[in-house]
Design a protein around this nucleic acid. Sequence first.
DNA 1: AAAAGTTTACAGACCAGTCGGTCTAATTAT
DNA 2: ATAATTAGACCGACTGGTCTGTAAACTTTT
Lengths: 182, 182
Amino acid sequence: MNTREKLVSTTSKIIRKKGYFGTGINEILKSIEVPKGSLYHHFPAGKDELIIAAVLYGGEAQILKYGEALRGKTAETGLNAMIDVMSKELIDSNFEDACPIAAVALAAGNIDETIRKACDKVFKGWQQSLAGYLERRGIENTTEKSEQLYAMFEGAYILSQAHRDVKYLELQKKFVKVVLEA
Amino acid sequence: MNTREKLVSTTSKIIRKKGYFGTGINEILKSIEVPKGSLYHHFPAGKDELIIAAVLYGGEAQILKYGEALRGKTAETGLNAMIDVMSKELIDSNFEDACPIAAVALAAGNIDETIRKACDKVFKGWQQSLAGYLERRGIENTTEKSEQLYAMFEGAYILSQAHRDVKYLELQKKFVKVVLEA
DNA sequence: AAAAGTTTACAGACCAGTCGGTCTAATTAT
DNA sequence: ATAATTAGACCGACTGGTCTGTAAACTTTT
C-alpha cells in the first residue's frame, strides 16, 4: 500500500467518526506516520482534495459490501442482508462509525461545493446500483423505490446510531416488504 | 432576550450548519458580541454544556413547528404538512441547515456520551409526540409507525440536502400513505 | 554505457491563525 | 454590602498550510 492509498483509506475511516470539521490533517498524518510534505505532494489542494478522494473511496467500498450482500438473492432477502451489513457495521464500530457519506454531507452546505457534489455522486451511484438490482428482479418503479429505500436506510442508520441500538435498522425489514409491494 | 438565551439560540443555529466540531465558541461569541466570561459564567463546563443546551433547545423548537403543522388535520394531510415544513426549512436556508439533532448525533459516537444522550432524548420526544398524534386519530401500531416515519423523514432530509433538491422529501408523501395503511 | 539532467516522492521545520479554556477586574442588580 | 453578571486580556495546544530541502528513479544526451 503506497502513501497515497494510506492517506485516502485512513481519512475515510476518520471521516466516518468525526465528519469534515472533526477530521484533522495532523491527526491523519500522525496515525499513519506520513509527513506533511507527502500529503501536499499527492493532494496539492490540501484537506478538501483529500476529503473528496476519501468520500469517493468510501462510497466505492460501501457499494462493494452491499453488492456482495445482495448478490444471488431475491429482492427481499437481499435487502434484509444489506440491512444486516449496516447493523453489523454499527455494532462492530461500537456505534462510532456513521454513514461515510452522511458524515460529510451534513456539513456540506457550508463547505466547498465540490465536496457536496462528491457526496451527491456517491449517493446517486448507490441508488442507481440498487435500482438496477431491483430491475433485474422484475420489480416496477425501481427508481422511486430505490430512492425510498435509501432514504429509509439512511435515516434508520442515524437513529440507530443515536440510540446505540439497531432496532431502527431491524424495523426496516418490515417496511422493505411494504415498499417492494407498493 | 438575555445573554443565556442568546448563547443557546445562536449555538443552535450554528450547529445546524456545521455540527459539533465545526461550531466554534469564538465564532458564537463574536456573532452576538458576548464576551467569554459570560459564557463560562452561564455554562461553567464550557462548550459541551452549551451544545447540550442548544440541542435540547433546537429539539423543542422543532417539535413546536411540527406540532403546529399537524394540528387539526387528518394523519395523512398533517404529515404532508410536516414534510412541507421540512422542505421549506431546507429551501429557506439555501440547503445549509441540517436537522438540528442529526448534525450533532453524527459525531456523537466520538464525543461526550452526555451529548449523545441529549440527542437520543430529543429523538425519542419527537417520536413519542408523533405516536400520540397518530393514536388520537385511531391508528394502530403507532409506536412502530412513528419510528418508521421519523427514520424516513430523517433520511429523506439528508438526501435532499445533499442533492440540493427536495424531491426526496416530496417522495415521502407517497410512502406516508403506504406506512399508515400498512 | 556513462554522465547529466529532470521528475517524482518523501521529509519535517515552521508559520500565522484559531481552538477551548482560565483568570482577574469591572460593572450591575439586589 | 453582597452576589450575579459582564468584560476581555491572556494561555498553551492545535489548526491547515507553506517552505526548503533530500533522495531516489527516470530520461536524455553524449
